[in-house]
Computed example of a mutant assay.
Amino acid sequence: MLNAKFYETYYFCNVIKNTLQDQFGLARVLNEFYGDGNVAYLIETFPKFSLFHKYLYFVIDRIYYENLNQLAENKSKRLPIEEALKFHSIAHISFQSYMEKNENKTEHYDDLIHNYMEDLNDAYEQLLTHTVEEVFYILFQNRDLLMEFNLMISGALEREDIKEIDTDLVTKRGRLKRGHIPKWVKRAVYFRDRGQCVLCNKDLSGIVSLDNKENYDHIVALAQYGFNDVTNIQLLCKECNQNEKKAGEAVTSNSYQKWYT
């Protein structure tokens, strides 16, 4: 169960959306996540801390530290991250107390800030992990955004030569092998997609018709360098899976059932 408080969560959601919409402008930053062979370390078969979780962690952590660099110029005695820690009732030492305790150990204010972050250690990790889970909770419902993310990461995989990786997860052609989809993935996707085919809205619950069979489809196909990740799976009927996905191109919909009419 996630005890969500949504402190700045929607701000981070918007930043994540913007990073996926401006991949060219942020190419240097994004390269730190998946470039220079890093994509090989992202290959797992349906980890619960998903590929998208890792991306959220990377971006949000970077935002926190970029904000600190800006604050270093103002020499503030109170940092915004303290407000977040306080809001989530995470025990921590205040930056002012930390400065008073360490002011004679360094001459540089920016060094104090970064040393303070290192000393926060478990408190910061707790805040970061919780924030990632809240952002994931919201954005996992946005299939179109998930498709953009998976297209980005599949493009990174295609550009890297990973055929030589000594792993059972990769084919000789440098694509990922099909992995068994765990029950927890199917349950998560079925719940998110409300038991309906996301392309034609056909009921797949077995209540209306026993003939309609649920298919769990990779949004970005493995043949197109897609990943075995919960964020790359959607619910389709058999017909849409066979016909609409025949070409292998990534496709989903932004059609969602309203909570009420």
Results as ranks from 00 to 15, higher is better:
E8G: 04
T9C: 04
Y10P: 11
Y11E: 14
C13N: 07
D22N: 14
A27H: 11
V29S: 11
N31K: 14
I43A: 05
T45C: 13
F46T: 02
Y57S: 07
I63C: 09
Y65M: 12
S76C: 10
K77D: 11
F87K: 12
I90L: 14
I93G: 05
F95Y: 04
Q96H: 15
E100F: 05
K105G: 01
Y109L: 05
H114L: 13
Y116F: 09
D119N: 12
D122M: 06
E125C: 05
L128K: 12
T131A: 09
E134D: 00
L139N: 03
F140L: 05
Q141H: 08
Q141S: 08
F149A: 00
M152H: 07
L157K: 02
D161Q: 14
E164H: 15
T167F: 10
V170R: 02
T171I: 06
G179C: 06
I181E: 08
F191W: 02
D193Q: 04
Q196S: 07
V208D: 00
K213V: 15
E214Q: 14
Y216L: 08
L222E: 04
G226S: 12
G226Q: 12
T231N: 10
L235F: 04
K238E: 15
E239W: 00
E244Q: 10
K246H: 07
S253M: 07
Y260C: 14
